[in-house]
Design a protein around this nucleic acid. Structure first.
Lengths: 152, 152
DNA sequence: AACCATAATTGAAAATTTTTCTAAATATAC
DNA sequence: GTATATTTAGAAAAATTTTCAATTATGGTT
């Protein structure tokens, strides 16, 4: 499959606003509506586009308390890794989880309503997962930048 | 503005897939197409929905090298903070930037193609920003979980 | 340079979806 | 219980997506 500069621009536009009509996109890309349509279908089929989502305003739904949690497993063995990753993925307060190099094994991005909700999450859900050795929480004072659009 | 359980469900569905038709949503919510339409417009106007975007597959576009960078400013004074935040926001490798509590001042989520691109970013762009005291990079070995959908 | 095969693009028509509109139903306040 | 506002529904209109056949461009071969 060929992936040219027009596809690149198209992906950039769709990452900014996926509700644009093909007509609007066709103007920006100097193409016909059908050409835009075919390119989008091609990008979807080829797996360049994972999906289309609505982004909600965290403030509006009282989920504006962000915490990054470092987690170290008691022992970094296959069994514990698989088990921990399966369990942590289930927690809907955890939007992101990364296996990291460095002092700690994992970094979690947790979103809750406030500190008391975080305490609940920590005590009842996170530390309920087995094989966790230690945790270290960093509280977000301000979200300076947040985008889902990846530049090429 | 009233925000009921149906609105909540609607936002959940739209966070999973914003390309669903109002007809599909009306079936899931046991409403008419118009009722769904009006609710979506209401949620958009009230600011619950920030926007609609396409999510691209990082692997496909060779931007699959994720690094979290801790940054400490030389001095945490108003002038340095404003200047740093303005400059770091401009960098398109930085998808997210958080002002944190704790040992370090900021946490950056950086996405590049590989280690050599990260070196370029570090030397030419990030450390070119003034007022940075020290940095500490953590490399992502594996993205265990990543979602944009916030649960209620 | 002419030719062929393949892929991309176009414009028009068809199908679907969104949006508007009016009226009925439901809820809310007095 | 009545009045007022809000929500919902169904039908019609407007806009958009999707399909299709024809045209144009592209790359490789002779």
């Amino acid at each position: 499959m060929v992936f040219d500069a027009t596809d690149k621009k198209l992906l950039e536009y769709l990452q900014q606003d996926s509700k644009q009509t093909n007509k609007e996109l066709s103007n920006k890309l100097n193409l016909s509506v059908t050409a835009v349509y075919e390119r989008i279908k091609k990008l979807e089929k080829a797996g360049f586009i994972k999906g289309y989502v609505a982004l909600v305003n965290k403030q509006k739904i009282e989920k504006n308390f962000i915490v990054f949690c470092h987690i170290k497993l008691v022992q970094h063995i296959q069994e514990y890794v698989v088990s921990f990753e399966r369990e942590v993925t289930k927690l809907n307060e955890v939007l992101e989880c990364y296996h990291l190099s460095g002092d700690y094994d994992y970094l979690l991005k947790v979103i809750v309503s406030d500190m008391s909700a975080f305490r609940e999450f920590m005590v009842k859900k996170l530390t309920a997962i087995r094989h966790i050795g230690s945790t270290h929480s960093m509280f977000v004072i301000n979200e300076v930048k947040h985008t889902t659009a990846i530049n090429f």
